[in-house]
Amino acid sequence: MKFTGRVWVFGDDVDTDQIIPARYLTTSDPEALARHCMEDADPSFPEKVREGDIIVAGRNFGSGSSSEHAPIAIKAAGVACVVAESFARIFFRNAFNMALPIFVCEGLYKKLKDGDIIHVDGDKGEITIEGGGERFTVAPIPPFMQGLIQDGGLMAYVKKRFVSPKVNVG
């Protein structure tokens, strides 16, 4: 997995209410959610984000709610991947289950400003900033979770391994 994109930089503890405010959770329509993506952290984000952009943040990205509306909103807004110092656990899990690429990378976000371009190489496990020589290491993904991505997310995984006559496939 490789991505090159323009970054939007956020700080620590960006919670799910900032990613998609709970007042919009009466729908799960991706396009409707994308219109409010990151609105409470940066009200102009839904207007300025473009297909292929990358969100870069500090510690504990995605803390708070278990709602998948947060990764859905990010995906539907066109964001290619999210890079953070660390992720809250339910967001981390949801991202893999729904095949939103996320990367744990320490030391990167403080060196970036909005609009910088980065190159993310998930296969090599490194990130570089365009115009800079420094390489940042991406934390390795556990083999089981790589398998989830290879299968195409949790539902595809479940279909492949669990759905059998014993659970009465329709």
Partner: peptide, 20 residues
């Protein structure tokens, strides 16, 4: 523990869930 909707869907179908 809390999970997302996709996890809930998988459990409703299989009765199982992955945990670290």
């Amino acid at each position: 523990t809390g999970v997302g909707s996709t996890d809930l869907a998988a459990v409703m179908a299989t009765g199982q869930c992955w945990f670290r």
